[in-house]
Design a protein around this nucleic acid. Structure first.
Length: 283
DNA sequence: AACCAGGGTGAGC
DNA sequence: GCTCACCATGGT
């Protein structure tokens, strides 16, 4: 991967595999990027940028001098994804899922942003999650930025319900209050997987699945393996048909795939949800 | 009109 | 520890 600065606001990332539509729009690990003409616009941690896909990488507009490191980390551009393929050795469906999505990457979002999005995701669908997160940014964010913890903590329950949050509104407000009052997500991100998971579970609206999503998409903890309805179907179908419940699937996956379980989860999730690998196809 | 969606919580065993 | 009803909302 190489980085060239083309102007005081535009940088070219090249020699890197990155399917922007897949990662930013279709993979459901982030919900607030928007397609513009020929590119994708988004915000993260107070930075705003527009990404234009190219043949061998992409251009990033709005990338001020000094922002290269932030976005390199956000897009996870320095990881050798080809090497992660070894984690799936011995599991044919996992290998197939990885090979079908060569430009997929697992983002490293600010943990707060992943926390908000995935509290909203509970028993919800991707289209609605996207609309709700967009509404939060438009109504509560400072000029287009992702809303800060204090902004959500200070929002009224009725205001959040009006944006479509439903019964998750009080969860969101309470968790935001804890973060605003010093519950340190960055410190948790530095802990090991098990300890980080246990601490995230103390936040209202956060159970095993949401915690795993925050750890995977917002903390760079690749051993997290979120078990949603699609992954449950896939794992029962091909990997662990005997699993008693979602917790058993989660354990089985981490035992099988280890530290890079998360990329396999993300690949399998997308392939099954999009019908690229049919749950009902014959063996 | 039921059922589903990147589930979590609290009550009752 | 485990199971289960319930929780808003919009789409099919």
């Amino acid at each position: 991967m190489t980085i060239e600065r083309l102007s005081d606001s535009t940088v070219r990332f090249s020699s890197v595999s990155f399917d922007a539509r897949l990662v930013l729009m279709d993979s459901a690990q982030v919900f607030h990027w928007q397609e513009t003409d020929g590119g994708f616009a988004g915000v993260a941690g107070g930075h705003a940028a527009r990404l234009i896909p190219g043949e061998n990488g992409f251009l990033l507009e709005g990338c001020e001098p000094g922002d290269e490191a932030f976005w390199t980390r956000y897009f996870d551009l320095e990881r050798d994804y080809a090497a992660l393929r070894t984690a799936a050795a011995g599991c044919p469906v996992a290998l197939e899922a990885l090979d079908r999505l060569p430009g997929l990457r697992v983002l490293r979002q600010p943990p707060w942003e992943a926390l908000v999005a995935f509290i909203i995701s509970a028993n919800n669908n991707v289209g609605r999650i996207r609309r709700i997160v967009r509404g939060l940014i438009d109504r509560l964010g400072e000029n287009g930025a992702f809303p800060a913890p204090v902004a959500l903590a200070g929002a009224g329950e009725e205001e959040l319900r009006a944006l479509g949050c439903g019964y998750r509104a009080p969860f969101l407000i309470k968790s935001a209050r804890m973060v605003a009052d010093g519950f340190d997500l960055d410190a948790i991100a530095a802990l090991g997987y098990d300890e980080a998971h246990a601490r995230l579970l103390t936040l209202p609206g956060v159970g095993d699945k949401v915690a795993d999503c925050v750890q995977l998409f917002g903390m760079g903890q690749g051993e997290a393996f979120p078990v949603d309805v699609w992954i449950e179907r896939a794992m029962r179908r091909w990997v662990s048909p005997e699993a008693k419940d979602k917790a058993a699937i989660r354990r089985a996956a981490r035992d099988l795939f280890g530290e890079d379980a998360g990329l396999i989860q993300q690949s399998l999730f997308h392939c099954v949800r999009m019908g690229l690998i049919g749950l009902d196809r014959p063996d």
